[in-house]
Amino acid sequence: MIASLRAYGGLFRMRFLRGLSYRAAALAGTATQFFWGFILIMVYQAFAKAGGSPLGLSQIASYVWLQQAFLALIVVWFRDKELLSLIVTGDSAYELCRPVDAYAFWFARLAAGRLAAALLRCAPIVLVASLLPDPYRLHGPSSVPAGLAFLACLALGLLLIVAITMFAYILSVVTLSPNAAFMFAAPIYEFAAGMVIPLPFMPEGLRHVLELLPFRLCVDLPLRMYSGAIPASQAPLLLLQQALWIALLVPAGRLALGKALRSSQAAGG
């Protein structure tokens, strides 16, 4: 037990350092995200200026900047390319030969990759965005409890998105075409999670439907928790909702991965 935990720990550390070592790529990525952030803020604010916006101008800015800062924790398309190339070449079947659980192994690997990227990228974005002039400035969390609830939701959100995207990796094992699998998943997820437009901008009926799905718990929930648009008092209930989804998706994914790996092994010859 301890030995296998150490194996995951070692893997986690390796991926983490790995992520840190691509500095130039990270720098370019950060610049890209600033650009996107500005575009999105200008678009939403231009709409919101017509009046009747459920999010204030500064809430829009905070929503967008946090979304950019923690992009690695909340988007589908943040992928582990090495793992995917392992899948494409059919070498993923070898994962069955290792003395560790393939699902847990992949889960740790993916979570570590996302966390490393997020930690690397969030600091410069949060720092610079909070120095910008209004209406682009990123303000602090609305209250201390809101800030804590934001972090908690983000943490569980990370586990949740890894559990969700694991299905895209499983689909890649089956189709041997990761691009297709991820491109299939991304538009559905992004719309339902509130990344195309924030959930509060949507009509009420649609919003209720999307709130039944797990996706918005990864993006919409933590970001609005931060600005106090969702009161911190609701946090325990929503965290529980996240935990339930994780408890549902992890065993399901584990089952599916095992099946997919075994059948890919049979087909591999």
Partner: peptide, 28 residues
């Protein structure tokens, strides 16, 4: 799958835009 995605991506964006217009009526 890819073709679906190629249709779905701009479509989800389009949905977003039309929802924004439905709510706010005008953009600048």
């Amino acid at each position: 799958l890819t073709a679906f995605a190629q249709i779905a991506m701009p479509l989800s964006l389009l949905a977003g835009i039309s929802l924004l217009f439905a709510r706010f009526g005008t953009l600048g």
